[in-house]
Structures are given as C-alpha cells and as structure tokens.
Design a protein around this nucleic acid. Structure first.
Length: 875
RNA sequence: GCCGGGAUGGCGGAACUGGUAGACGCGCCGGACUCAAAAUCCGGUUCUGGUGACAGAGUGGGGGUUCGAUUCCCCCUCCCGGUACCA
C-alpha cells in the first residue's frame, strides 16, 4: 500500500488482476448454485450518463455480494443498439446510423470497463448485429406459422411535410417536431403479435412474482385490465348492427345515445351525405394518437342523423360520432349512459342529450344528477322488468336477456391490445416477409436468414432509405421468382424482449437458445428503471412464454458436450424472479428566457451558485458573462435540459470507486437521486480516511484473546459484529445500499477513535478493518482489494467468503431503555439485559425527571416494551 | 384524463413489524495546525425559549384510530414515472 490513496493506480492494478485471471468469465457448473444478475442494457447514445452508472453499480454490487456468498454468478452486458436516436444523429451529423452506433458502443464499453464492473465480456452482444437479429427473424417466421402473427391496419402519426411517420415523442402539441406541420392520423397495414392470447397467463403469473415490487405488479395488472361485461348489438335499420361492449349492463336502460369512432363505417356513411360530418371527420384526423392526448383533449361529437334501436326498449337512440372513441380499441363504438358515466354525462350536457337515471343507491335514495353522474353500483329503477335488481342480479338478468334474444353475449375483455411490431424506420431489424406481385406475402425461408440490413446508406430523414435500395428490396428465389422485401423494421422492444436469454449462449450459431439457458434462467435479479415497469417488462414476459411454447427455440448443443442433451424447451414460465426498479438521477436546472419565448438551458458546470448561511440558493450567475440565470426545477438529467453531469469527468478526478460509493450512498436505489457535487467530495474523503486508517494496521497482531477484553474492547467488537449483521441484511435482503454504507462509516468512525495500545487493541482494529473492507468490497471493489492485501490477506477479496457476525460478540450486558410519560420522552435508563418487567417499571418510576411529570398525577398504566421503552400513562 | 409512486432539518437521506424523529453524509459555524492558504483533525448544528439542566413545537395540508403515528385509515395539495412509435 502506498502512503496516500491514489485511485487511478489502485484501480488500474485491481482491474489488471481481474482481467488476467479472467475473474468474471463463467461457465455452467451444475454443482454450484447459480446466480444470474442483469442490469437492463443501455441504448448506445454516445456516452454513459449517471442513470447508467447507477443502474450498473447496483447490479455490480449485487453480483459481487452473491459471488462472495459462493454462488456461480453470471453478469453479462450488451447493447440495445437499434433505435430512433441513431437516425436523428445520422440526419444532423451525416453519419450512417450503423457507424454512429458502433463508435458509441466502443466508447461506452471502455467507460464501463473503467468503472470496474464484473462483467463476463465474452458474452457481449449488440442487437444490431446480424448474428443476434437473425434469431428474432427466425422466431418471427415461427410465430407466423403458428398463427401468432397477423396483419391489420393501425393508426400512425403522419407528417405531411416531411412525408414520414413520426413517433409520439416527435409530435409536439399536435405538430411535427422538425417540420412544424399539423400531424395527421393515417391508417397503414402493420404486423401484430397476439399478446392478448396470453393475457390470462400474463395476469395470473403476476401473483407468483413475489420478488417484484407491488407497484409494478399492480401497474401490469391494470394495464392488462381484465374486465367482465357484455358485448351486444344495437340494430341500425339499413346498416350493419352497431356492436358495443360494456362492463355496466345494469345501466342499459339508461342508454340515451351511442357514439362511434371517426373511422367507423356508420360515420363514413354519414359523411358522404353531410359536409359538416365530413368536416368533423377531417378534424378528427388531426388529433394525436397517444392516449394522453386523446383523454385530455376537449371531448367533441356530432349527431350522425342515424338512429340505433335500443335492444330492450326498442326505442330509437341517436348515434353520434365522437373524437374520443377509437376505432382500433374494442368495437369502435360505445353505448352511452350519461346518468351513470361521468364522460357521457359531460358529453350529454354539452349536446343537450337526455340524461335518464336508472341506478339508485342501495339505501333507496335517488341519485342527484344535477351536477354529476352517479357512477357507483346500486339498484335498478326506471328499468322495467329489471327494477329492484342489484348490480349482480341486473348484470345476470340483462346478459341473459340479450343472449336469449340473440343480440349479444357475456364476454371477458382486456384493456391490453395486441402488440404492433411494425415500424416505418430504417435503423431496426428488417421484418422477414416477402411480397409477391399479386399482393401475396409469406415469411422468408429459414435458410435465407438473416435478412441483412444494409449499413452503408444515405439517410436524410424522409422515410426509410431501404425503399429506394433495389439491392435490398428485390429478392429472387432459386426458381427465378421475384419478390419485394418488406421495408418496415421491428419495434425495438422486440430485441430487448429476449436478450437476457441470448446471453446464456451468445456463441450458438445453430439455434436461438441451447440447454445452457435452462441452467441460467430464470434471472435471479433484474435491475432497471421504473419507466420500464409495464411495456418492456410485459413484452419480455410475453416473449419468454412464446419461447417456451415454440418448437426448436432451444436445442441441445453439439453431441458430446456436457449438459442435459435431451432438453428441447425452455423450462421456466417467467424470466425474472426478482426485480429491482431504480429511481432516476435528477439535478437542478438553469435557464434564461429568449426573446422568442424559448428557454436556453445552461449546464450546472457553467453556472456559479451563491448560497446563504443556511445553504439556500441566493443567486445563480453564468460564469461566462457574470449575468444572472434563472434557477429551474429539479429534473431528470437530460440533454434537452442540459443538466447532465458527465460521469467521466468525475471518474477522472476521483476514480471509479468514489463515483460508485457516492451514487450508492446518496439515496436508496428505488428513489430518485439528486445530484450533488460536494457530496461526491465527501465520498472521496471517506475513502481517503479508510486508506489512512488501514495504513496504521498493516502489520499488526491479528489474534484476539477474547478472555481478557475490557468493556471498551467488548463495545468495539459489538460494533464490528452488529455492523456485519446489519450490512448483510441491508445488501442481501433490503437492497438499501445507502444504509449499509452509513453503517460501515459508523464502524470506521469507531475504529478511528480507538486508542490502540495493547496487542488485543491492534487485533481488534485489524478485525474491524478487515470486516469493513469485506463489507464495502461489492461497492468499492478496487480500494478494498488493495487494502485487503495491505492488511496481509493472501487471497483476492472478490472470492473471499462474505463475513458472518460472531454471536458471542453480539451479547450485551446492559441495554438502554427510553422512558416516556404519556408518550413523551422523559428519561433514559440502563437496565440489565435480563431485567424483569417489574424491576424495569420500578427503575422507570424512580427516575427523577420522570417523577416531575408523574407526581400529583394518577397512575393509569405502565407499558413495557422489552428492549425498547417504558411508557407511563398518567391522568 | 387514467394507472403507479413520492413529499421528513439549509441539502441528500435514516427511523425495517405502530415504540427514542433527524443515524450517516453534505453544507454551514467555531476551534487546532500553518507565515498564509489548501488539505487534515477536533467541537457544534431541526426550530423557538433558556447561560444551563430542561421545556414547547415539529415528518406536504386537514381530520381520525391508538397509551404511543413519519409508519395505519379517510379527504386534499403539489411533484415525479407510465400512458402502447423515446428507450
């Protein structure tokens, strides 16, 4: 050990040691318990941001902790390399997306290596590599043959100026982000995966995912949105019947209108005869496609002049076209009950449609419909034969009535919609479909895969360059038949839905998976941002079940290799046993208003902040011109707000260990983390203090004579071993790395205050320091490796067994109890560990300060909580 | 809009199963060392009153349950994530 802590040197030495011993390359070992730990792979956007550092440090800490528990730990890393930002970069930098992406990967890989993460780099993968995406093309053709894929039209955002499809993110206030043109809805044919076939299993499986946060399970459950209802027809004279679905058949007699989507055949029919309606449909074509935009926009509609026939009363009911009804969701039409649905109520008020109450409270009170709908379950009235029935009875009676009259049937419905996987983009995995001249289409043959995406392209941002590349689109079969290739690519969620499985066998060129996947899967720990709670994690669960159910996804490895050679399918039902959702990294923002109303954002590094004596921000000025800037809100670190802190600069200044320590210490992993430069300095200070303390204990006595310990020495050993127990619980069970670090800091504070005179003192200090570095080593592995060796240990710390608390050292003779009077703290007393309740009560009552509050009062009762407190209740 | 989450000193956070509110760290204040500064070390630091012992108040706001509530229940405010083509 050097006299002063030199992170650059210490980290280079440790990393060299790990690399030379190939410490993190692992293979299947049936005799050892495996642990597969994975952090969500990054999109290679350029360089690492703090969110990445946080995500990967959490995964690394868990991996290294599990390794010290003796498990066979797999922690791989790869690149979610297809996506929109590469196309944007291509437009602004005139670089092909492929080159931009590969350069970013090279830079970011080196950053990850500099941070010392314990990855098995031999398993690295990139989703834009044909060796990777060929298997999802192969898989898609299998799904196609199994009928799990189909084509239908779906709505996209169309920029009429740039002549291109826009992502929701690229639509800002209804306009294209580059062109500024009003975006239109356009229906185009797209491929869908039948995720709704798996809705029931995806829902039921959530109950078994006990290692997942409740919030994520609830969100997925609500997203799937199983409901029981009735689907039935309103007859429309001269037209096809109007099919609707409702979960509230009990309110059927309160229907006073129906509403259909703008693309509904009834609306299209009416528009041909009425210019106002045609104009309204045109207006609907200009609304956004996102749910948030649709739900928050002003609800508008127009009567079509068509009546539907109520299925029970046979009364005519007007049909409206409404901008909030979606053709792509459900039947494209809804029944409306203004009295018992708030949205219908507001719509009816706006357009003067009748409001007919048919449900009253169970208490018998009629609903007050003057200001709002009555939406609770209740009892039917105004409903003819159904009067007096409660919700369940009315549901049954009305569903039966509709069934008997052949107008409808009970139906389980899901909010979940089939997964549209087509994207009209270049930088993605080509969808392996061939089109014939006469409009037929079929999947590419297995032996013709992969369909390679051309990487040398001219990319100008208006549509996919593939469309103009005949060398890509033209395909001629061996028989000389000519086909057109599909130019759409897959949704990038397609790639990220199965990468975790591919890591088990990246080198297999014969199959998507082999039996090694059954050794490693399911993941023991998955770590990623809470923003992925529903979509990515639901698609991955779905994909996992597909891989389990499709033939030949998993094949045995070549003959003669170890392992269960007869395995031909994936054995588990769920991919991720435990899930940790990490919070975002946020930071302050600084800006100035420009004349045109836009804001210019300044990086925290460009701003000088003055604080008052309490630390509150007084003023902020731009260093460049000394003029004031506005202090904005605290937001997620992002390019758009220019509030990112570059991890690289901090690594260069303090080393990887300091960055890892700070980011794990600043907040528990599932909360958002507010960046603070000065707190990073504090983490660095702690490591320097630890180093200095370790220097003093390098070559000292290490045998403790437990027979002759003083009270002070016993206390230090109690601290050492209670810290071991706490840190083990914090890292292994609670995942509260911040409190684990705080506990070791407390221990180091105790150790540095020790007066080290006797050999026993030295030995205890050595014991305490060894424990401290073992406990910290998953978090700050480099410095711990160096100190560990400095303390005279011969084995590498990464494989040293995790420490266990010595039960004998945890026994205390006396404990402190708190004494409360009427719940207020009045005294503290020291009592023997095994003191009886009555003795404790006597001691508490005898305390002088306690007596000040109990004197002249009547004693009502005394509550003794062993080991904690005494509460004396007086009146 | 809907679904999910959050709010505790000047700041990040701790208090795990209803039992000491503020661990640990940052910042700040005072001191030591130094010609001086940085670094380092020592002490203090929720607010109010008090030299002090101590007392009162206090966990986004309002109400409730309890001997006792940051923790459980009801209502509200604000902030964050998702909302199916950002990843």
């Amino acid at each position: 050990m050097q006299d002063s802590y030199n992170p650059a040197l210490v980290e280079a030495q440790a990393q060299k040691q790990w690399q030379e011993s190939r410490a993190f390359e692992v293979s299947e070992d049936p005799d050892r318990e495996k642990f597969y730990c994975l952090s969500m792979f990054p999109y290679p956007s350029g360089k690492l941001h703090m969110g990445h550092v946080r995500n990967y440090t959490i995964g690394d800490v868990i991996s290294r902790y599990q390794r010290m528990q003796g498990r066979n730990v797999l922690q791989p890393m790869g690149w979610d390399a297809f996506g929109l930002p590469a196309e944007n970069a291509a437009i602004s930098n005139r670089v092909p997306p492929a080159r931009w992406t590969y350069e970013n990967i090279d830079y970011m890989r080196q950053q990850l290596q500099r941070l010392g993460f314990a990855y098995d780099w031999s398993r690295e993968l990139a989703t834009c590599d044909p060796d990777y995406y060929r298997w999802e093309q192969w898989f898609f053709t299998r799904l196609y043959k199994k009928g799990l894929v189909y084509k239908k039209t779906a709505v996209v955002n169309w920029d009429p100026v740039d002549q291109t499809v826009l992502a929701n993110e690229q639509v800002i206030d209804g306009r294209g982000w580059r062109s500024g043109a009003i975006v239109e809805r356009r229906e185009i044919p797209q491929w869908f995966l039948r995720i709704t076939d798996y809705a029931e299993e995806l829902l039921a499986g959530l109950d078994q995912l006990e290692g997942w946060p409740d919030a994520v399970r609830t969100m997925q459950q609500n997203w799937i949105g199983r409901s029981e209802g009735v689907e039935f027809d309103f007859e429309v004279p001269g037209h096809d019947p109007l099919r609707v679905y409702t979960t509230r058949p009990d309110t059927l007699m309160g229907v006073t209108y129906c509403a259909v989507a703008a693309e509904h055949p009834l609306a299209l029919y009416a528009a041909q005869r009425n210019a106002d309606i045609a104009g309204f449909l045109e207006e609907c074509r200009k609304t956004g496609t996102s749910e948030a935009a649709l739900e928050t926009m002003e609800k508008k509609g127009l009567a079509l002049g068509i009546d539907a026939i109520h299925p029970v009363s046979r009364e005519p009911v007007p049909v409206y076209v409404a901008n909030f009804v979606l053709m792509s969701y459900g039947t494209g039409a809804v029944m409306s009950v203004p009295a018992h649905d708030q949205r219908d109520y507001e719509f009816a008020r706006k357009y003067n449609i009748a409001i007919k109450g048919v449900i009253k409270a169970v208490s018998g009170e009629s609903p007050d419909l003057a200001t709002a709908a009555f939406t609770e379950h209740g009892v039917c009235y105004n409903s003819g034969d159904f009067d007096g029935l409660d919700f369940d009875q009315a549901f049954t009676a009305i569903a039966d009535y509709l069934a008997e009259h052949a107008r409808g049937e009970r139906r389980v419905n899901y909010r979940l919609r089939d997964w549209g996987v087509s994207r009209q983009r270049y930088w993605g995995c080509p969808i392996p479909i061939l089109h014939t001249a006469n409009g037929g289409e079929f999947p590419v043959d297995e032996q013709d895969l992969p369909v390679r995406l051309p990487e040398e392209v001219n990319f100008d941002g208006s549509g996919s360059p593939l469309k103009d590349m005949s060398e890509f689109t033209r395909f001629e079969s061996e028989e000389g038949q000519v086909f057109q290739r599909e130019t759409d690519t897959f949704d990038t969620f397609f790639e990220s839905s199965w990468y975790y499985a591919r890591y088990c066998c990246v080198d297999n060129e014969q199959a998507l998976l082999d039996e090694r996947a059954n050794y490693w899967l399911p993941l023991d720990q998955y770590i990623g941002g809470i923003e992925h709670a529903v979509m990515h994690l639901l698609y991955a669960r779905f994909f996992h079940k597909l891989m389990r159910d499709i033939q030949d996804v998993l094949v045995p490895r070549e003959a003669g290799m170890a392992g269960a050679a007869d395995e031909t399918s994936l054995k588990c039902d769920e991919p991720f046993t435990n899930l940790l959702t990490q919070g975002m990294v946020v930071a302050e923002t600084y800006y100035r208003d420009r004349d045109d109303g836009q804001k210019i954002w300044f990086s925290p590094a460009e701003v000088d902040v003055k604080r008052d004596e309490k630390g509150r921000i007084n003023s902020a000025t731009l260093i460049a011109d000394g003029q004031p800037v506005n202090v904005g809100s605290i937001e997620k670190m992002s390019k758009s707000k220019n509030n990112g802190v570059d991890p690289q600069a901090l690594i260069d200044q303090y080393g990887a260990d300091t960055v890892r320590l700070y980011i794990m210490f600043a907040a528990p992993p599932d909360q958002s983390l507010e960046w603070s430069d000065s707190a990073v300095e504090g983490a660095y200070r702690f490591l320097k203090r630890l180093w200095k303390l370790a220097l003093s204990a390098r070559a000292c006595q290490t045998r403790i004579d437990t027979g002759v310990l003083s009270a002070e020495q016993k206390e230090v050993r109690f601290k050492i071993h209670s810290t071991i127990a706490k840190v083990n619980d914090d890292i292994g069970r609670r995942y509260t790395f911040n409190t684990a670090i705080a506990a070791v800091m407390e221990l180091v504070n105790v150790l540095s205050r020790m007066t080290c005179e006797s050999e026993n003192d030295q030995a205890i200090l050595h014991e305490g320091l060894s424990a401290s570095v073992l406990l910290l080593s998953p978090i700050v592995p480099h410095i711990c490796e160096a100190i560990w060796q400095g303390l005279g240990h011969a084995d590498p710390i990464i494989d040293h067994p995790w420490p266990r608390a010595d039960a004998a050292a945890l026994v205390q003779d006396e404990v402190e109890l708190v004494v409360q009077v009427n719940g207020k703290l009045r005294a503290r007393i020291q009592v023997a560990r095994d003191a009886g309740k009555e003795d404790i009560e006597q001691m508490a009552l005898a305390d002088e300060n306690v007596q000040r509050f109990t004197r002249d009062k009547q004693l009502k009762k005394v509550i003794v909580v062993p080991g904690r407190l005494v509460n004396i209740v007086v009146a």
